[in-house]
Amino acid sequence: MELFAEFFLENQKFIYVIILSVLLGVEVISNVPAVLHTPLMSGANAIHGVVIIGAIIVMGHAPSDDYLALGLGFVAVVLGTLNVVGGFVVTNRMLEMFKKKDK
């Protein structure tokens, strides 16, 4: 119980953020027409590429003689960038096709 109280008080801010984000995510996605399911999934896929920021932090604070951390950090940044860039570009390509037919 004491452990829980400590955890809660220490991370109160984040707990708020998590709960509000969960509700927001549900709210934002409700009533989406089926047409947009694929692009939406793809867009969400690009957004979780935000994990790249963790990779940058890992890489940026790795001691310059710790080759394992540097190597893995490098890999992590490449993977994260793939997720972000690939995700957004693919989503954009899908959505461009919706634009064309407005002409």
Binding site: N11, F14, V17, I18, S21, V22, L23, L24, G25, V26, V28, I29, S30, V32, H37, L40, M41, A44, N45, I47, H48, V50, V51, I53, G54, I57
Partner: peptide, 26 residues
């Protein structure tokens, strides 16, 4: 989002959780 929790990084946390919940609904 767990990564965001690890670093106390707000943008990772919100981005990750948003996708987590929206993805579940989808």
């Amino acid at each position: 989002a767990l990564g965001g929790f690890l670093y106390g990084n707000e943008v990772m946390l919100t981005g990750g959780i948003l996708v987590g919940s929206a993805g579940t609904i989808l």
